[in-house]
Computed example of a mutant assay.
Amino acid sequence: MNPRGAGLMLRMSLSVADLASIGFAVSPAWEVVASLRVLRDPGAHAVHLPWVGRRRAAVLASPDLRQLRDLAVTPERKLPGFLAPAPHSPVAEPETEFAAVRQTPATVVREELALVYGDRLPASLTELRRAPRRALPAIVEQIRTYWELALAPYWGRMRGLLEAT
């Protein structure tokens, strides 16, 4: 607890090897997840309201993005990690990350869905749990569709800002 008793203090112990493995990277896959969360709850992200106003209706109304929305915007703000894999370079390319999502092993998909949803898996994700190898290409197509609709027009500017921070 902090001195006022109003919060938590997190303490982590890291080895030299742990510290050496930490890096910061620009991740298009993470930007997909984060932006979907912004569209779902724009009031919590006021700085992005101009972008939300231009993109929200089209994205949230699209039935073709249902599985992606259900994966990225979960009730408890958890995330199946396979949806935003760790980048392998400081500035990952969108297609490289999308390919990594597609190549996620079936056991990893099932384990992460179980961790995030337990027995409350949305109906739209049933096929992904049942047959991940068959369903992942459709998820990746939804990611590409969303990317083109919502982020690609802004990516040059976003990438510049992310690289500058």
Rank of each mutant, 00 (worst) to 15 (best):
R102M: 06
E112S: 15
S124R: 04
Y117S: 06
D119M: 15
A99Q: 07
A138C: 12
P75M: 04
S124E: 05
L125I: 06
L151G: 07
R129F: 03
F98C: 10
Q142S: 10
W147R: 14
P122H: 08
M158Q: 04
A135V: 11
A84T: 11
Q142K: 04
I139L: 11
A138V: 08
L113H: 05
V116D: 10
E93D: 14
L136I: 13
T126V: 11
R157P: 12
T145C: 13
D119A: 08
T126R: 03
L113G: 02
R102K: 04
E93R: 14
A92M: 10
Y154D: 09
A150G: 12
P87L: 06
R144Q: 09
G81S: 14
F98T: 10
L121E: 06
L121R: 14
E127P: 00
A152H: 14
V109H: 09
K78Q: 12
R133E: 11
D119P: 00
R110L: 07
P137V: 08
R110S: 04
V91N: 00
S89I: 07
T107S: 14
E112G: 11
E127T: 01
P132E: 00
S89Y: 08
A138P: 08
P75W: 15
P105M: 09
A84Y: 04
K78G: 12
L151I: 07
H88F: 14
T107P: 03
I139A: 01
R134G: 09
R157S: 14
Q142L: 02
L128T: 00
P90E: 05
I143N: 00
P75E: 03
V101P: 01
L113M: 13
A123M: 02
V108S: 07
P75A: 14
G156Q: 09
V101W: 00
V109Y: 04
R133Q: 05
E97M: 03
A135G: 00
R77C: 10
A86W: 11
P87C: 01
R129L: 10
E127A: 13
L79R: 12
Q142N: 08
L136F: 15
T96N: 10
E111K: 08
L149K: 11
I139H: 09
R134A: 08
I143G: 09
E97F: 02
R102S: 10
V91K: 12
R133S: 14
V108C: 05
R130C: 04
A114F: 15
L83E: 01
T96I: 01
A106T: 05
L128R: 01
T145W: 11
A131R: 04
T145I: 05
P90T: 04
V91Q: 15
T104V: 07
T126G: 06
I143L: 12
P87H: 09
D119R: 07
G118Y: 12
A84S: 15
W147V: 09
L136G: 04
A106M: 06
E97Q: 05
W147S: 08
P90R: 07
T145S: 06
E112H: 06
A99Y: 14
W155E: 06
I139W: 08
Q103K: 13
T104Q: 05
T107V: 09
Y154C: 13
A150W: 15
R130K: 09
Y154S: 07
P85M: 02
V109K: 11
A99G: 09
P85T: 01
I139G: 02
G156P: 03
Y154R: 06
